[in-house]
């Protein structure tokens, strides 16, 4: 047993490519499966959410304009960075959640593979879901999917890392930016994932990660007028009604998902139809 004192990590939020503390100064304790204290996590406030939305909005236009090829490479780069830190994530998940190493390995593997799967979607979407519509007249008419804007998400409690990636990746594939609230009980690998994001090529503001309490943040996400869509897969069913009511104020698109499915990507895309005459 070494006498060396560990240098412990301070876990902060991930907003606009930086790692700020909550403006509220509040934290909450995270303990491992055996009840041993691990870290103080930021308890994000509605103002942190507001800042994250500002960052996400500012980043959206540029991220949307990036070519599908580029977006695919950026997401693939996240997978590369995560792969290179497999051991760290397996350790963290094992220690923090008390799961077996084999299960932790499987989750990290699934995370990397899931990111690779999403990366390949960026440049397929419009060819698979777009359409050239045969209107009855001399018009060229096509429909293409297009980004919706800023999307909020509540990641599920478990699996905490894979759930987070399943919340983030389908949103950004189509050019949206995201503000996601990580698992409340197991947020540590989420914040380590933010370090992965910070060292990959994701432009600042495209992905913003908060830690804190769902019942505190979700209603503010639902009512925020500059959030266009909301993935509530991580919320308990009994809160959905109130969230949807709050979201109706700007007719937010609110969905929950059961699986990683192309429908999950398309849910946060708008379809734009363009008409143009065909003539001499």
């Amino acid at each position: 047993m070494s006498n060396r004192i560990d240098v412990k990590k301070t876990y902060k939020l991930f907003i606009n490519g930086a790692f700020p503390r909550s403006e509220s100064g509040r934290t909450y304790e995270i303990k491992n499966a055996n009840g041993v204290f691990i870290a103080n996590l930021c308890l994000a406030s509605r103002k942190d959410l507001k800042d994250a939305v500002v960052a996400a909005r500012a980043a959206q236009s540029r991220w949307n304009k990036a070519s599908a090829y580029n977006k695919g490479q950026v997401i693939y780069r996240i997978a590369e960075m995560l792969e290179s830190r497999r051991a760290q994530f397996v350790d963290e998940i094992t220690v923090f959640t008390g799961t077996t190493k084999i299960k932790a390995q499987k989750e990290v593997t699934d995370c990397v593979d899931r990111l690779v799967w999403y990366a390949g979607w960026t440049d397929k979407l419009s060819s698979l879901t777009g359409a050239l519509n045969p209107v009855a007249g001399p018009y060229y008419n096509f429909t293409l999917p297009e980004s919706m804007g800023v999307i909020a998400a509540i990641a599920p409690e478990t699996p905490s890392l894979l759930g987070l990636i399943d919340a983030i990746a389908p949103i950004i594939v189509g050019g949206n930016t995201v503000v996601v609230l990580a698992s409340t009980k197991a947020p540590l690998s989420a914040m380590s994932f933010a370090e992965v994001l910070a060292t990959s090529d994701v432009p600042v503001g495209v992905i913003n990660i908060l830690t804190g309490k769902k019942d505190e943040i979700a209603p503010w996400m639902a009512s925020h007028m500059d959030i266009d869509g909301f993935d509530i897969s991580g919320l308990d069913a009994q809160s959905h009604g109130a969230i949807r009511i709050a979201g109706a104020e700007n007719l937010k698109r609110i969905f929950r998902f059961k699986s990683a499915d192309p429908g999950r990507i398309l849910a946060f895309l708008e379809n734009k139809t363009v008409w143009h005459p065909i003539g001499l």
Binding site: A131, N133, P134, V135, A136, G137, Y139, N141, T143, M148, D228, N250, L251, E270, N271, K272, T273, V274, W275, H276, P277
Partner: peptide, 23 residues
């Protein structure tokens, strides 16, 4: 916007998806 008419306006067709963004 969900429908963009270029050099025309207010054209509708059953084959052409219609509907809006935002509110």
């Amino acid at each position: 916007a969900g429908v963009i008419w270029v050099n025309t306006f207010n054209k509708f067709d059953p084959t052409s998806p219609f509907g809006g963004y935002k509110e």
